[in-house]
Design a protein around this nucleic acid. Structure first.
Lengths: 227, 227
DNA sequence: AAAATTTTTATTGCATACAATCAAATGAAC
DNA sequence: GTTCATTTGATTGTATGCAATAAAAATTTT
């Protein structure tokens, strides 16, 4: 989205904060103190504030006026809204990818699946987490439409802090990999409809797992935002 | 997306710039000089820069590092990408609206259609432009999903500067209104599939008109970005 | 002792000021 | 006359400083 001729300090901070949020270093709900962060990254408050504003616009951070910035925390309801929307966006991306991916892109997708198979066998959830991201990003890129690509990318980022927990669940990695195979097959067969169905199910299953997770929680946590 | 307890100067500037871009006062491609704008709105560069960064994140403005901010100008190719994506987003919104709209929301939609009919008869394109926006926003809200609503809203804004031209074309208003009626009927019948098909066609037609418009231009303008 | 009110403190939001960098304009060489 | 180098100018990116506001703490009142 931004030309890379001169990586400004602001831009680098945006990336670093993004990384720290996605990687789970900064958990949802934590307050982002401007002075603390500016000292930590070795720059002044001005570019840091701009970085926070940009992250807020992308949804990863929430700025409450006169109160500060916080890593966005989704309510259970918000989470389900997000997942159902993400399922549709991914469906669009997969559908278009099936029709428009180049030969090289299809080969890359297959290669990613092969690498992922290894991390599944080794039970390396950290490696799979990364390959999972690359798999989905490959599909976004394969759609050959910058708007879906950006939207899907942003959505994936917003869900990342929670997805990490999901993939830690027993057997989830193997299931996920099998679902990816179904998606890959459909894309290789240039069957957009099937690809869309498969990836929609792939995302929806995460919502179901999330619901099951919620069911194990006390009722007080369900249905209202966690502050 | 932002609580309204204290409308900061930055927030108001974001809205004012949004309005001016959407209303066509600031045409795509124009450079947004920081000092000029800060003088014009009576504030300093700091909050204005934050406002520009926020608009850049939403896509209405493009910031070229060390070069300044410009109102985003879409290339012909980018416009088609945008429209094809928007068609799918609107389809999702319409489909969900058909299933989830409340009685009051359905009534509002019908009322909007009635008002629009008047502006069509009077040939008041300015009024129709506004009612068209309200019609689509009503559907976004009716989807009862903040993510689709936000995404569709942003996309609508980004297309606004160009849509204004579209609706000026002879007979386009009447056709548009008829298409809206088809969409409304499908939503009232709670037929999500039909609503999605109808609104997808409604958006796609704009793409076709745009292609026709391009065909009338010299070849030199087609296929490359206008700088 | 609990509640309400005042005071304090810390943090945000904004303004100003400086420095780094890029674009354009001017001038020199071929 | 054209091209390249140099300088100038303007504008962005960043740092610092101040004032307004909101949350927290302390004091007073019921």
């Amino acid at each position: 989205m931004q030309s890379e001729c001169a990586p400004t300090l602001k831009a680098t901070v945006v990336r670093r904060l993004e990384d720290e949020i996605v990687s789970g270093l900064l958990t949802p709900g934590t307050r982002l103190d401007e002075v603390q962060l500016s000292e930590r990254y070795g720059l002044s408050r001005t570019p840091l504030r701009e970085a926070l504003a940009q992250l807020a616009a992308s949804g990863l951070v929430e700025i409450r006026p006169r109160s500060g910035a916080f890593v966005t925390q989704m309510s259970p309801r918000g989470m389900l809204e997000c997942l159902s929307y993400a399922a549709e966006i991914e469906a669009i991306a997969a559908s278009w990818a099936a029709a428009r991916m180049t030969g090289a892109e299809r080969a890359d997708l297959v290669a990613l699946q092969r690498d992922a198979a290894c991390s599944v066998e080794n039970g390396d959830s950290e490696a799979y987490f990364d390959l999972n991201r690359k798999f989905h990003e490959a599909i976004y890129a394969g759609a050959h439409n910058s708007y879906v690509q950006d939207a899907a990318h942003q959505l994936f980022l917003r869900g990342a802090p929670y997805r990490r927990l999901q993939l830690r669940q027993r057997g989830r990695i193997a299931t996920s990999h099998a679902e990816h195979q179904t998606i890959t097959d459909a894309i290789l067969a240039e069957d957009g409809e099937a690809a869309a169905r498969a990836i929609r199910a792939h995302i929806t299953i995460q919502g179901d797992r999330f619901m099951e997770f919620l069911a194990a929680l006390p009722d007080a946590f369900i249905g209202r935002d966690i502050r």
